[in-house]
Nucleic acid binder design. Sequence first.
DNA 1: TGTCTTTCTTGAAGTAGTTCAAGTTTTTTA
DNA 2: TAAAAAACTTGAACTACTTCAAGAAAGACA
Lengths: 190, 190
Amino acid sequence: MYKALFDHIEKFITLENSDIDKLETCLELSKIKKKEHVLTEGQICNTIYFVVNGCMRQYIINEKGTEQTLQFGIENWWITDYLSYHNHVPSSFYLQAIENTDVIAIDKTVLEALLIEIPSLERYFRIVTQKTFGAMQMRIKYLFTMSAEERYHHFNDHFPEFVQRVPQYMLASYLDFSAEFMSKIRAGKV
Amino acid sequence: MYKALFDHIEKFITLENSDIDKLETCLELSKIKKKEHVLTEGQICNTIYFVVNGCMRQYIINEKGTEQTLQFGIENWWITDYLSYHNHVPSSFYLQAIENTDVIAIDKTVLEALLIEIPSLERYFRIVTQKTFGAMQMRIKYLFTMSAEERYHHFNDHFPEFVQRVPQYMLASYLDFSAEFMSKIRAGKV
DNA sequence: TGTCTTTCTTGAAGTAGTTCAAGTTTTTTA
DNA sequence: TAAAAAACTTGAACTACTTCAAGAAAGACA
């Protein structure tokens, strides 16, 4: 089960066998049930999650009481609240499983120790974060330049399987429009 | 002039004197004139920029021919197109100085060599990128939950000096509304 | 200093989305 | 397999913005 993570790491750096052993002793697999939270608003986030199987999401509840999904995390993605994690401040977000999900959860103190033991992991996390940041820059571009309908079709063209996998209302909020409008787009009534 | 960067790095890691010497030989200061570009759409981005003095921005030109600013970079910020940088694909963005700006520009090949020579720099970049990513997550939250007027006041409350520093139309597009609407918000006509 | 360019302002008209409320369909659970 | 819960649909009314066009003000530079 840890293999998913080892494989992912080895896309970016080379691990010695001894590193793999060290890593293995630090990791712990955790099963998150659908709808279960691993972080809620106001908590301090001290953990970083690698999704092995399933799907997580980061969301907020706005002042109208509606959930808005800001980020999804599927297989081979890391997900956490980096601001709360690094600045040790209460989180503004919820982190929830939207399927039964297997994650590797690494506690901040464990990770710190690990990064000292295996410095090349710094490189791994640096590259992965920068690439994710690059994807986020593109997402902002799409949010800024495309209409709701264009965003939906663009997303659907690029990730058709994923669109089938999550409730429409979550995807709607991720693409920054209402669930009702999503319905109308899909029905061609717009 | 490099001191700004050394100081910034030492907020996160400790540099040996020998590291500082190594670093110093690799860095090159570059002066970017106001309105000058260091990256235009379609180019591959092979450089990462640390702003010492002045201000840069990342922007696009949308299909109506209007510029939309996606990101600003002021003193002590790194700015680049991470997607183009890592995936070696043409950039979707422009990177431009909006004031006469001093940057430390590090070429990808130079940086790669540097990171091998000074592995603790991986840690520096990892932490800086993750913190910036955290800030970006908050930005998305604000874009999703606040009205145009709220976004303006919120930004103005947090960065009043910066608001004075850039043209309103650039800030308007960064906050994702039109320059005209910005005018009306400021005049209280909304 | 004057001229050119850039930035900001204003109002009127238009529109891409939201909100609400109610009903229907699908999925989950006991 | 029935009942409950979650997710999706629909139309009508509304609104937070955009767009356009034109003029005014401020800033830059020859």
